[in-house]
Design a binder for these strands. Structure first.
Length: 851
RNA sequence: GCGAGAGUGGCGGAACUGGCAGACGCGCGGGACUUAGGAUCCCGUGGGGAAACUCGUGGGGGUUCGACUCCCCCCUCUCGCACCA
């Protein structure tokens, strides 16, 4: 529906059909063809031998999943990256700007089931299509380094890395409650569950008890948290999100004996100072003690019913907040570790198995949740913290007091400040062997098993005699079988593929069975940025010397949706590889840029919403550079922006005006005919040509600054102003000179080169240069062009703009003051009033304060 | 609830360290050229006012010669996390 409407709008668009010739507009099609031909012939975007480059810049766009068509929102990502890469190249760097495909994953497999097309074929077709689109945009990647994670020569090394982690004890298999998506028929990592739903398909996730493979990312929890401080050039937002996700909290682990179990009941608390106020313990319904007690018949049928109901509701709406507190008294009691008095153990709906130990000590007087629970079930409440005078009101039975204070009702600890008491209580516990200080993380280990076909097979073998045996390195890759059937049964085709399953045990030689799980695609993408340095290397995942020379990635660009998953996993992987001696750096990405989404009608573009803006018709009608320029101009690149078809027009008009300026000064242009440019320009000292020149260099300064600061929207606006200035100058008539206009044309062409590369390339040729503008030196403003004898200052009266005065540059305060007061308008305002004060900010303004 | 970001014309947005609010573009109004204009060019375009002038950056206070920018309180929106023990 909306696509049809777009098409109609476009047909009514003002740009001429380029096939008709150019009544207006500019010959973008011919420019694109010749520029792209040139770039390919001269292999401009290939970075060559990685060990040879002196000044290096690794600019990386997150490699995409090859889902098929790209829309203009996707385009923004690559246009940004390309602008940076081209800028750096002109600034003299050897730039590495590679591209590849995050090519494993479910959509390919779903397509296989729906259309009976092999995932590899589907993926390959999409890659070809997307590559075409990149070319159409004129994005300059080094295609000699192209990789695809579904290529056996790639996933062979994903498997190799898995084995490395296994060898180091960082990959392990464990049984536990895991997230299961009934629609995708696979387990999911915690990170892939949003609001209790599968982040991919939106189906409600259920918990299942399965044996799965994990990566021990928690081993690096502290390092992943601490090293965030090294990432000064990452957006604050992303660092905060990662820190929250890792979720470190300091407290104490406390053991309560006497539950009739071999092991004591362990809880984690951040407030050991409130221990004497603990009047009950609360367990999650999934707590192993609860399960055992139930099996042993210690809990009645009412309890069993309660537990089942709780587990069910937890799956259905476990992310709903404000749920009424509910619990069940198990009848079990434990002994208080310091006083020995009995404490009842409850099962409570607000205790989660996934955090801490799945058990808490409840202090109703000082925790609001515990308070609500205790009030409802008439459990005693003991105040143990009282705020110091003047710092809040003490516990009064109407709600918990959660702040700091002085300990009361706490025996030997009475009178201690709560902050200090935390250590004292913990120490007392330690002395009794009943607890110690402890740091707890929210981060869980990374579940990497997937019960699907289209992923890298986990290189493990199950032998009835030897147990789990890794596939020997020489046998890698473990290939995905080609001959498989894709049926909508939800079962991985690997499970029924005898040729794949049957294998000899590498250890004993006996018959064994392959692992049928494949790896989470985030494993594939956690190391790809290193593979680009040596994409065809057959002896290792990457060439260590090249990787150490080029990484960390200087500029990483991608969507903020990867703020946690991909970026955390990649950071983890680099730390692992560092610790096994394969790389010498600790963080993969030096500088991260997360671009905003492009929305249409206020929504994210998606096929289901029908608001996708396809680029093809726009490229056809306006050319790639117009689309690129508009995409950059639309707003600050890190912010979301609303697409407006009419806005594209503005970019097109600008390029048309720019092209006219080039034609005027080059070849047989009107200005060129009048005079020829002198070999060495002799700039005039005053008058309009001089003013134009100053303006051009001022704007050059602005555009250079903006580009460096990633303010590409204002860089485009600066260029527009530059071209407007030339046009105004030419429109003004009078002492028109070629030299200044020609200089403006040359500078603006180089400034434009990273943004609208085809047009700039053609203009550069027209201006008579034989080398590609992509390698032309990045311009800088000439200091002498910026010089001026006078400066216009703002004159304020009582802080409001009233006049301007022109004073010599470097004028002293007194001169400026006099000039300001001498102004006719100012004098009129001052008349009859007292001048209380005159503020002079040299070079800026004068403020006259009247009374 | 916690954390982060944002709120500026009809619209997208600009204003880097406090110093001319609204750059640039879209749209809109007027004009030129024209058989025509949906091309191009010129002029105008925050509100009020004939003008002098005045009001104006979510709201209310404050600091300052001067505040979109800094401080305090409040409102709204977006994103992330969420019974985190």
């Amino acid at each position: 529906m909306s696509e049809t409407r777009d098409a109609i709008n476009l047909n009514r668009g003002s740009a001429p059909d380029p096939e008709e010739g150019s009544r207006a507009g500019y010959p973008f099609r011919a420019l694109e063809e010749s520029a792209q031909r040139r770039w390919a012939e001269e292999r401009l975007f290939e970075s060559g031998d990685p060990m040879a480059a002196e000044k290096r810049f690794y600019c990386l766009n997150m490699f995409p999943y090859p889902s098929g068509d790209l829309h203009v929102g996707h385009g923004r990502n690559y246009i940004l990256g390309d602008a940076v890469a081209r800028l750096k190249r002109m600034q003299g760097y050897t730039v590495l700007s590679p591209m590849g495909w995050d090519a494993f994953g479910l959509p390919a497999e779903n397509a296989a089931i729906a259309n009976q097309i092999h995932p590899a074929v589907w993926t390959k077709r999409n890659i070809a299509r997307m590559k075409e689109q990149f070319h159409a945009w004129g994005v300059g990647f080094d295609w000699t380094r192209e990789i695809a994670s579904c290529d056996p020569e790639y996933y062979r090394w994903t498997q190799w890395i898995f084995l490395k982690l296994y060898e180091k004890g960082l990959a392990y298999r464990a049984k536990g409650a895991v997230n299961w998506c009934p629609s995708c028929q696979t387990v999911l990592a915690n990170e892939q569950v949003e609001d209790g739903k599968c982040e991919r398909c939106g189906t409600a996730v259920v918990l299942r008890d399965l044996e799965q493979w994990y990566f021990k990312i928690t081993h690096y929890a502290d390092a992943l948290l601490n090293d965030l401080s090294l990432l000064k050039q990452w957006p604050e937002k992303v660092r905060v999100m990662q820190a929250n996700w890792i979720g470190r909290s300091e407290g104490a682990s406390i053991r309560f004996a006497g539950a009739g179990e071999k092991a004591p009941l362990e809880v984690f608390t951040t407030r050991p100072d409130t221990l004497l106020g603990a009047t009950f313990l609360a367990l999650a319904a999934e707590h192993p003690f609860v399960t055992r007690w139930r099996e042993q018949g210690k809990l009645g049928s009412d309890a069993a019913a309660f537990i089942d109901r709780l587990k069910r509701s937890r799956i259905e709406n476990r992310f709903a907040i404000e749920t009424e507190k509910e619990g069940f008294d198990t009848g079990v009691t434990v002994a208080h570790p310091l006083t020995g008095s009995p404490i009842p153990v409850w099962i409570a709906n607000y205790v989660m198995m996934g955090y801490g130990t799945g058990a808490i000590m409840a202090v109703p007087a000082h925790d609001q949740r515990d308070f609500e629970f205790a009030t409802k079930y008439r459990i005693p409440i003991v105040e143990v913290i009282r705020p110091e005078a003047g710092s809040g009101s003490a516990f009064d039975g109407s709600g918990a007091y959660e702040g700091e204070g002085i300990l009361v009702n706490s025996g030997a600890f009475d009178g201690l400040a709560s902050a200090h008491a935390r250590g004292a209580v913990t120490e007392a516990l330690r002395a009794k062997g009943a607890g110690e200080s402890r740091v707890n993380f929210r981060l869980r280990d990374w579940l990497i098993s997937r019960q699907r076909y289209w992923g890298a097979p986990i290189p493990m073998i199950h032998c009835p005699k030897c147990g789990i045996v890794p596939v020997p390195e020489k046998d890698l890759p473990v290939l995905l079988p080609d001959q498989v059937e894709f049926k909508p049964t939800g079962e991985s085709p690997l499970l029924s593929n005898e040729a794949f399953l049957r294998v000899d045990c590498p250890r004993c030689g006996g018959p064994a069975r392959r692992e049928t799980d494949t790896m989470d695609t985030f494993v594939d993408s956690s190391w790809y940025f290193m593979r680009f340095l040596s994409p065809r290397l057959e002896t290792a995942p990457f060439a260590t010397d090249a990787v150490n020379r080029w990484l960390p990635v200087n500029q990483y660009i991608g969507g903020v949706e990867h703020a946690i998953l991909h970026l955390l996993y990649s950071r983890f992987m680099v730390k692992v590889l560092r610790d096994v001696g394969m790389v010498s750096f600790s963080e993969p990405f030096e500088r991260l840029f997360t671009q905003g989404m492009i929305t249409k009608d206020g929504n994210k573009m998606s096929k289901s919403k029908g608001n996708v803006v396809p680029p093809d018709a726009l490229l056809q009608r306006y050319g790639a550079d117009t689309v690129r320029l508009y995409t950059l101009f639309i707003g600050p690149p890190e912010k979301d922006a609303e697409w407006n078809d009419r806005g594209v027009e503005g970019a097109y008009r600008f390029l048309t005006r720019y092209w006219k300026m080039i034609e005027d000064v080059a070849g047989n242009g009107s200005l060129r005919k009048k005079e020829s440019a002198p070999p060495t320009p002799n700039w005039v000292a005053s008058g309009p040509p001089r003013e134009l020149r100053r303006r051009v260099h001022q704007l050059t300064q602005q555009v250079c600054d903006d580009m460096d600061r990633f303010h590409l929207n204002t860089a485009v606006s600066g260029l527009m102003q530059l071209v407007n200035a030339v046009q105004e100058y030419q429109g003004a008539g009078g002492d028109l000179r070629l030299a200044e206009v020609r200089e403006a044309a040359e500078i603006s062409t180089r400034l434009l080169a990273p943004l609208a590369p085809h047009t700039a390339e053609g203009a550069w040729e027209l201006l008579g240069y034989s080398n590609s503008v992509a390698l032309a030196p990045w311009p800088a403003p000439a200091p002498e062009a910026l010089e001026s004898a006078t400066k216009s200052l703002v004159v304020q009266v009582n802080g409001k703009l009233r006049a301007h005065v022109i004073v010599p540059v470097g004028a002293d305060q007194e001169t400026i003051r006099k000039a300001a007061l001498a102004d006719e308008k100012v004098a009129k305002m001052v008349e009859g009033k007292t001048v209380a004060q005159v503020i002079v900010v040299p070079g800026r303004l004068v403020n006259i304060v009247l009374r």
